[in-house]
Simulated assay, not measured.
Amino acid sequence: MSYLIKPKEYRALLDLQQTELGIKQIKDFFQQNLSSELRLRRVTAPLFVLKGTGINDDLNGIEKAVNFSITDMGGEQAEIVHSLAKWKRLTLGDYGICEGFGLYTDMNAIRADEELGNLHSLYVDQWDWEMVMADKDRNLKFLKEIVNRIYAAMVRTEYLVYEMFPAIPPILPSEITFIHSEELLQRYPNLSDKERENEIAKEYGAVFIIGIGGALSNGKPHDGRSPDYDDWTTRSENGYKGLNGDLLVWNPVLEKAMELSSMGIRVNAEVLLEQLKTSGQESRKNLYFHQRLLNGELPLSIGGGIGQSRLCMFYLRKGHIGEIQASIWPQQMRDEAEKAGMPLI
């Protein structure tokens, strides 16, 4: 069910033309910085993939992909991508990209089961990136290093926005705070996962929550993850499980935590089998992607996605993602958003 947050005394700081200019400048500047920080080359990505190959991202395992039949291929079924988590790793292998280098692309997706609101849309646009890594770097230290480099690009981009629009001063802290999801649970044992995120993001401004997908001490994961891309099983040196996480910032307009990126060190063959077994999806090991990984044909990698519209929404202090991107919204939401000063594109 859709839900609209109406920020108190909300007033857009930029008009429509300024907003469009800001979106372009943010996207151009950030992707150049991301490419430089992680040594990524841009590649062209698919909007859809063949069904039954295991290439599409299953997200939490319950979302249905939009699909259609291909007339000129005997009615074979194609699926609109949810994300490119596994496609990118296949591409790293097929392109023969060297260790320490990677790729990024503009990912556009349709998520028909999304609960619509200020932060969630049917249309998803993000920078998907993936980098070849060494086996010795499958550890928490390396994960944090990559997060810090991405966050540095975010901080620089925020200052660019301030130079363009002096009415929008920077608010991101100079450094991001790291915390494991189990530590977060122990700190706020009586709160839900989203309430815990709100508390920690409000306290620090920007935070990376480590360990998403594996069960915590309360028997539940902090959030869901498909078992076949992020490694949420391997124990790090602090004793906690998980070599992945979510990057969140405090959104002062909505007064809540806002996820900007999800990323992690990817599964190797051993971890893939373990996570498929844990999640009851062992039959997936026979699919195309999984067979290539198990046969040693794909490189070890780290990767993730960074929301383009969300990033722009945060930088430009917008109250609704529909002020950044064109999508479909319930008419009631459109009407209420208009009255609240948030006209949706």
Results as ranks from 00 to 15, higher is better:
225 R>C: 07
227 P>K: 07
202 K>N: 07
257 A>F: 10
211 G>N: 06
230 D>Q: 10
256 K>M: 15
250 W>K: 06
175 E>P: 04
213 G>R: 00
224 G>A: 15
244 N>A: 00
250 W>Q: 05
182 E>A: 00
207 V>L: 08
218 N>Q: 13
237 E>R: 09
234 T>H: 03
207 V>T: 11
191 L>H: 14
200 I>C: 04
239 G>N: 00
204 Y>L: 09
176 I>N: 00
213 G>C: 06
178 F>P: 00
219 G>D: 04
180 H>K: 04
187 R>T: 10
189 P>M: 00
201 A>G: 14
217 S>V: 06
256 K>R: 15
190 N>E: 14
253 V>G: 04
172 L>A: 08
212 I>P: 08
255 E>W: 11
173 P>M: 13
222 H>K: 13
214 G>H: 15
191 L>I: 11
170 P>K: 12
219 G>I: 04
228 D>L: 09
206 A>W: 01
188 Y>R: 07
173 P>N: 12
255 E>S: 14
220 K>T: 12
241 K>N: 13
199 E>Q: 15
229 Y>P: 03
198 N>G: 06
255 E>H: 14
187 R>F: 05
228 D>V: 10
214 G>R: 09
204 Y>T: 13
220 K>V: 12
190 N>T: 14
215 A>T: 15
179 I>H: 06
245 G>R: 00
249 V>T: 01
244 N>C: 08
186 Q>D: 15
230 D>Y: 15
255 E>Q: 15
213 G>Y: 02
180 H>P: 03
183 E>A: 08
218 N>Y: 12
229 Y>V: 09
173 P>A: 13
241 K>P: 08
208 F>C: 02
186 Q>M: 12
252 P>L: 05
210 I>C: 03
225 R>S: 12
194 K>P: 11
173 P>H: 12
184 L>E: 02
234 T>E: 05
